[in-house]
Amino acid sequence: MAEIVGAYFTSHVPGIGGAIQRGDQQTPYWKPFFDGFPPVREWLAAVRPDIAVVFSNDHGLNFFLDTMPTFAVGAAAEYRNADEGWGLPLYKPVKGHPALSWHVIEQLVADEFDPVTCQAMLVDHAIAIPLELAWPDVTEWPVKLVPIGINTVQHPLPSARRCLALGRSVHRALSSWGGDERIVVIGTGGLSHQLDGERAGFMNPDFDRFCLDHLAADPDALTHLSVHDIVRLAGTQGVEVLNWIAARGALGPGAVEIHRNYHLPISNTAAATMLLEPA
């Protein structure tokens, strides 16, 4: 039987990629953020996952408004990164695990979710940066990917409750997967930030602390918030916390926090990193 070793959460600001490429990890601006990662790397080295089920949102690389999914599940043999519009160096491709992807899709549809299935899918910085932060020195990622995309771009967004339920359905799938792989769940994005409008630059440590404090022990507390509440409290892009909520559901019923880092600002964003293990 497969084992879910835990869950890893992190913000995914594009600028992090630039800092890595410039080697800025130890500069005063970046150090408080990157200092959150040695414990992540040690933990990953100890729990040795070989599959990553990643909840994230596309930033206009793979999806456009012509065909905008609420939930998209990748089922490809390989996921490539591509030019996101800034001509930056491309991130390494990630191998897929189509058999597990289809197993997840079967469970989701049986549980009355309505996913889009993607046998071809480009992945953007929202997946690549968390992998770069976790495994900075590898030539090939040690994990195969099952990517699950959540619409955080175009309202109506799925509710926090729906996202937690999505994650719990994924958990059922992972729990019944017959392989002997070790699975890490990853949630990326957030926390509070707002890039657009007169309120650009808004961050909210109170809200972020509420999320971080409840994620392990009481994730349902987050589902009392409407999407509109989350935008108000976390900013227009703070809704990316939906990825965290879904990932928390996929981890399983009980969880214990084993690591947390929180620092702002990184670019316009309050950046957080967290590790949970099944309780």
Binding site: A75, P98, S101, W102, I105, E106, T117, Q119
Partner: peptide, 10 residues
């Protein structure tokens, strides 16, 4: 025509 077929026949 399920996931297996969809993968094989892509």
């Amino acid at each position: 025509f399920d996931g297996d077929a969809a993968q094989k026949g892509y």
